[in-house]
Computed example of a mutant assay.
Amino acid sequence: MIIIETYTSAVIFCILTMLAWGSWPNTQKLVTKDWRFELFYWDFVFGIAVVAILGALTFGSWGTEGRGFFEDISQADAKNMLLASLGGVVFNIANILFVAAISIAGISVAFPVGAGVGLVLGVMLNYLSQPDGNGTYLFSGVFLIVLAIVLSAMAYRKISQNSGVELKGLLLAVISGVLFGVFYRFIAASMATNFVMPEAGLLGPYSTVVCFAAGILFSNLILNPIIMKKPIQGEPIAFSRYWNTISRNHWMGLLGGGIWGAGLLFSILSSEKAGFAVSFGLSQGNALIAALWGVLVWREFKGAPGVNKILFGMFTCYVLGLILIILSKVY
């Protein structure tokens, strides 16, 4: 299989993950206005599964390093396959709740709460489970990125039409943040720590992503119909609406899932050289990438009073935080 061989390459792949996870929401902006997230989400999940399978059959099967995909998946313990799949289930629940939190409480509340809780909890869990690198640098970087996310929320509040916060939306954001912080730990627990000479019974990176995608896919067959019939926000949706739309809506969902799935694969591949805490921490800068898209492309902050200073502080904290997280493996 094809793997990453240097820490520098691992950092580059973490940044690619950050770009992917911060960019996929653009595909949802490109669908028609009547295309609800619940319908978009079916194609999003299919997109993740397609990328996982293609990655396993190509890069996961080429090369001479480690175990190829078919050899790896056939020797894996059922417990480890279940753990990786459970990571997909947890992520799926978190993602659905997070979107509901945004629809109720607004992005200015949901993002700092959900992304902030997920970032801090995820780095802590992965670092305590596998201490790797300078903890002072790592957690200082995490603090700066959380501060950047808070500043991002302040900027969004400048353009928010509704400053009221519903308790239900805030609670959903907290729950989704906890689940976002936990899901990566299931992945890490199922994986080999050495991709060149992987331990028996544990999963390699490509098999891990396939099992994770299977967890998302099968859990979505249960969760999404429930959300469509009893939505947290809005009217119930009949599944027949999925077929009654233009092809662009489906292609955008598949593309969004493919982008997110590619980001996950990059993150998993980088984890051997960067460590799970660094890999997860760098990847979670996606909130700021999403803000960049909003500033530069969608012009979401145009005309908002006093927002430029907040955005400058946000991007400064973000860049400094990333530098500290990267340096945590050097010093």
Results as ranks from 00 to 15, higher is better:
residue 227 I to T: 04
residue 136 T to W: 15
residue 37 F to C: 08
residue 35 W to Y: 13
residue 74 S to C: 08
residue 192 A to C: 05
residue 15 I to Q: 03
residue 266 F to K: 03
residue 301 F to S: 01
residue 205 P to H: 04
residue 158 K to A: 01
residue 8 T to A: 15
residue 184 Y to Q: 06
residue 304 A to L: 02
residue 129 S to D: 11
residue 79 K to N: 08
residue 256 G to E: 12
residue 149 I to G: 03
residue 19 L to M: 14
residue 266 F to P: 12
residue 255 L to K: 02
residue 87 G to C: 09
residue 184 Y to E: 00
residue 81 M to R: 08
residue 295 V to L: 12
residue 62 W to V: 08
residue 292 L to Q: 00
residue 272 E to P: 06
residue 305 P to F: 06
residue 127 Y to T: 04
residue 293 W to C: 02
residue 158 K to M: 02
residue 286 N to D: 15
residue 186 F to C: 04
residue 298 W to I: 06
residue 94 A to L: 07
residue 143 F to T: 13
residue 148 A to W: 06
residue 296 L to F: 15
residue 299 R to V: 03
residue 65 E to M: 09
residue 20 A to M: 15
residue 277 A to Q: 05
residue 78 A to H: 01
residue 137 Y to Q: 10
residue 314 M to S: 01
residue 58 T to Q: 02
residue 192 A to D: 07
residue 290 A to N: 11
residue 203 L to H: 03
residue 228 M to C: 07
residue 300 E to M: 02
residue 6 T to G: 11
residue 318 Y to E: 03
residue 103 S to Y: 13
residue 268 I to T: 15
residue 226 I to T: 07
residue 257 G to P: 09
residue 5 E to I: 12
residue 11 V to G: 07
residue 105 A to W: 09
residue 94 A to T: 04
residue 211 C to Y: 12
residue 175 I to M: 10
residue 271 S to M: 13
residue 27 T to M: 14
residue 218 F to I: 12
residue 300 E to R: 01
residue 179 L to N: 05
residue 13 F to K: 02
residue 328 S to E: 09
residue 11 V to Y: 07
residue 230 K to R: 13
residue 246 I to P: 00
residue 187 I to H: 00
residue 9 S to F: 14
residue 282 L to A: 07
residue 293 W to K: 01
residue 3 I to T: 13
residue 229 K to L: 10
residue 165 V to I: 15
residue 12 I to T: 11
residue 192 A to F: 05
residue 278 V to P: 02
residue 253 G to S: 11
residue 21 W to Y: 14
residue 208 T to D: 07
residue 217 L to C: 11
residue 52 A to H: 05
residue 189 A to R: 03
residue 8 T to I: 14
residue 51 V to R: 02
residue 8 T to S: 15
residue 168 K to Q: 13
residue 162 N to Q: 11
residue 311 L to T: 00
residue 168 K to W: 07
residue 167 L to D: 00
